[in-house]
Amino acid sequence: MSYTFTILSPHDTPLFTHTFGTSRSSGTGTPAFTTADLALNPFIIHSALDIVEEVQWGPSSTSGSAPMYLKHIDKYQNNFISCWITGGNVRFLLLTRPRDEALGISAANPSSGSASSIYSTGSGAGSVRGSLAGGRAGLGGGAGMYNPTSPATEEAVKNFFVDVYESWVKTIMNPFFAVGHGDVVKSPVFRARVQAAAKKYL
């Protein structure tokens, strides 16, 4: 799985961006985005801001408070967006791009190991790959598929956001950091903190 994490100011200025891969299940932590993906990701993230503004005030039945963690809010093709909004209306957006297998794009059978991967490359898997319609149809069922609303995924993303939020609050406590003026986070320590949280939870 590959991730792009962006912090956006209340005026939609990107303050911090970090792209990384999963460190779970023998992942190396390097993202598998192509150059085209990397160019497209900012657009996907910015388009999700409309959804954030729709859901950020919460259902009207709430007692006047809403959680900061808005969970999975948007999906564009095979990219899933999760959001955390701070008290000061700074948005943390995490774009998740699962591996093709987890989307059912390359029709590998997870139960039969390496043999099936050889088999699938030989057979008609190539025709399924690249077909977005087929990939999305495959999302509906089957174990091992990526599901953005599963409790485990939500919890992992939440833990990641909680860690980043703590570092973020420490950043804005810096008297030399002009909060609300679109000041970009340049601290290498902050980046290291985000990397550590990503490695730990995602």
């Binding site: 701070t86 008290g87 609050v169 909060v179 609300g180």
Partner: peptide, 29 residues
Amino acid sequence: YPLGLRLLDLLLSRSSNPLSSIRPTRILP
């Protein structure tokens, strides 16, 4: 003014269990 921007997030993050962080969305709260 900048103190207010900072205190908002600081106090919200302190107020409760950080895992259930909430923020006010109505005027009265």
